[in-house]
Computed example of a mutant assay.
Amino acid sequence: MASHFLVLGILVATCSVSLASDPSPLQDFCVADTNGPVLVNGLACKDPKLAQASDFSFSGLHLPGNTSNPVGSKVTPVTVAQIPGLNTLGISMARIDFAPWGINPPHTHPRATEILTVIEGTLEVGFVTSNQPGNSLITKTLQMGDVFVFPKGLVHFQRNAGNGDAVAIVALSSQNPGVITVANAVFGSKPAIADDLLARSFRTDTKTIDWIQSKF
């Protein structure tokens, strides 16, 4: 009887592990069917026999982004929305252009770790650890060719630390990493978060919060 329970336990454990996740795709590729009626965690696949080169390519990453905006930066994403063939492959990338002293404001990617390479200029980059380690700021000034990693889900930022333009290329460990810009989420939500709640959270007054919210 004991041996029967042991075998049953091994089977249960094996099934639990095997059903926990698929570490890699179960087919050569899964080109996203953006018009498909099926809703899944990701995008449904179109018939692989209909796949073509355009499903796996993107043009224009050599072109500078327009940094004429309040933050002085422009992100050009290359995710599954731009390359349907990225579906299920767990990767994406982006180009980030910075005007002199432009910033990519504090933000998070809820589904991806990011690795950044400076292609041109000088960037000040950093991320903040979670509450338990004490919200430590890890920061570094990068030159052309330097690489920096931002762990998944942590608040991070970049700033052009020079008088000329700067360019970075980033890779992310998700076909659709998502982005939550902290200021936009906190002060620009629709409907707005109650100003008295934010005032208490930021240790200020509702008048200051109302003024900040008006900017978003």
Rank of each mutant, 00 (worst) to 15 (best):
T79D: 06
G162H: 10
P105V: 09
Q158S: 07
T113S: 02
V147H: 05
P100I: 07
P133A: 08
K152A: 01
T88K: 09
T139Y: 11
I119G: 08
N176K: 06
H109D: 06
G90W: 03
V179S: 15
T129P: 01
I119V: 14
A94N: 01
V170L: 14
Q82A: 04
P110D: 13
W101T: 08
T139E: 15
W101D: 12
R159E: 09
A185K: 11
I138G: 02
P100G: 07
F98E: 05
T139L: 13
L116K: 01
V78C: 02
T139S: 15
R95T: 03
T141E: 15
P105C: 12
V147D: 01
S174L: 06
V167A: 07
G85F: 02
N131K: 15
L154N: 03
I180S: 14
S92G: 00
F150M: 03
V182T: 15
I83Y: 07
G126L: 10
G178S: 08
V80N: 00
V179A: 15
L86S: 00
R159A: 15
F98N: 04
P133H: 11
K74T: 03
R159G: 12
V128Y: 07
D97A: 03
P77I: 04
F148K: 08
T76C: 05
G134K: 09
I103S: 12
P133S: 10
D146M: 14
A166C: 11
L116D: 07
K152M: 05
T141M: 12
